[in-house]
Amino acid sequence: MSGMAGGRLVRLAETGRAPVRFLLDGVERVALAGDTVLTAVLTNAPALRQAEFGPEQRAGFCLMGACQDCWIWQEQGPRIRACSTPVADGMRLLTRTREDWP
């Protein structure tokens, strides 16, 4: 597994769960069953996407579905709210918008 160096979150407990494999910007990454998409992405990367109205990146804020800061793109289908969507095997997530995606 690669990419932990780029993750911002730290797992403190509950690390014995089954692995879940997903693609982040086309690269295979590993999360754990029961992770939210936010946990899955941010244990592997520093952010979820680029901010729409500023130069900074976005990584969620409230984790309770109230701020809508945690939207992330999928290769297909709708954007998802990362803090309240469980990660699933085979998800294809993008930290860049689809338009930037080759």
Binding site: R8, L9, V10, R11, L12, A13, E14, T15, G34, D35, T36, T39, T43, G60, F61, C62, L63, M64, C67
Partner: peptide, 17 residues
């Protein structure tokens, strides 16, 4: 993050932000 977010991460995911 909000403080509440950090507590949710700890409780519901076993995570430090």
């Amino acid at each position: 993050y909000s403080l509440g977010a950090m507590q949710i991460a700890l409780k519901a995911q076993g995570i430090a932000m």
